[in-house]
Design a protein around this nucleic acid. Sequence first.
RNA 1: GUGGUUUUAGCUCAGUUGGUUAGAGCGCCUGAUUGUGGUUCAGGAGGUCGUGGGUUCGAGCCCCAUAUUCCACCCCA
Length: 461
Amino acid sequence: MSNIKPSLAKGTRDFSPQEMTKRNHIFDTIKKVFKKYGYAEIQTPSMENLSTLTGKYGDEGDKLIFKILNSGDFLSKVNPDLLAVKNSNAVTSQLSEKALRYDLTVPFARYVVMHQNDIALPFKRFQVQPVWRADRPQKGRYREFYQCDVDVVGSESLLNEAEFVLIYQEALSNLGLKDFSIKINNRKILSGIAEIIGKPELIIDMTVAIDKLDKIGFDGVSKELLERGFTQEDIDRLKPVILLEGTNDTKLTTLKQVLSASQIGLNGIEEIELVFNYVQTLLGKDGEQPKLELDITLARGLNYYTGCIFEVKTNEVAMGSIGGGGRYDDLTGMFGLKGLTGAGISFGADRIYDVLEELNLFPESTAAGTKVLISNFDPAAENYALPLLYQLRASGISAELYPSAAKLKKQMGYADAKNIPFVLLIGSEEMQSALLTLKNMHSGEQEKLSIEAVIARLREV
RNA sequence: GUGGUUUUAGCUCAGUUGGUUAGAGCGCCUGAUUGUGGUUCAGGAGGUCGUGGGUUCGAGCCCCAUAUUCCACCCCA
């Protein structure tokens, strides 16, 4: 066995016990909200057939899919002519049949199509699993990270969108976040804008450019729009829309005027208004008001959104979006099941972790480890302790016996390092009297108790 | 895919113009204390300086390549 220096694959991380406690706190909090809104959990395999994933995320996305090399003599299946000209793209499909999942939405679409006869529509599912992207790692960006998705298929109602707003609000504030914005936009409004300036075919270029407004400013956006085929005249017409300010109501009023000639644009405005109304009615007067902002520059990369688009950003820490989603008509069309609409949102658990860590928002006592350690003096004491260990555990007390007769100093040190609050000392004296020494590691106090009294005492705390 | 940056003890990091034996803090181990941790004191172990080449009498330091960290762009959670 050669001695290889251990290292992690780029962009991946280990999660130690303390980190897992915190991560599970996030997952549990989010899942609890999902369940409360009537969503049921599913899981799909880590790997999908490559053909299931390719072509769903655009050219950029396809490059970021982790492909799995075929097993066995994989080169024998490859067309030698393609190999000779070193055309990587052309040989990929012959070298790789499987790939790691890139997101949870496309596998879900596949799932819906394959199980269409078993599921009742509308189908509400949530899914919390890792996804993999062959991106360059940087702040808040990993190659393996968890998404927490909720999606509903088969329901056109905008009530779903409104509930997503409430889910974001509830889950994130349960996690301790105080100042975050839920941004909402509608693809139809963007289409309407592109239609008004007479360049509907450039909608993607338009949205990609104006999406960067808060990053590069209006001048930067103008420059990019010019590069992407818009004229100065177009930009002048776009300017009031891009720089739209004020409350949601003012923005909507302005947009209605600007888009009065675009049926699709007005349609999008109407959808946004319906969502706002649903949210207000759902919350009533007592509900915690979400910071819901209509943001016309919100585009999001994925090409398949067709209606409302969501993105969540925290205002307390510099971090990319911690969640996003939207509606996609014809979610399952790519797998041959037409006319099924879907809508969903996602939480970026790893980014949320980084945010909570930076803001120190993880609860203090999330660690629920061993409550009592039984010391181990010698084989006789160990033998005496074993039934007691069973008794403690049978009473629901998390307990462990130090597995060897090491020096007591070492055993106490172990309890200390592991933050175990009590140590039960059992030596010859204790065995004779059947009164055990229970030491409180925090106060340092010790008392002699029967096993029954020990159990009663430990149950109290 | 593009540009920059990082890598030295288990961890966080010093390391002068290229010059003898590479340091500190924390952690770890041993003892003071054979049945008592977290505090204190005394002592100790631990480094192919990311890896592979090169320049030089001599490289942790200079050059090339490569991996890796972090950051920005593209894109995205």
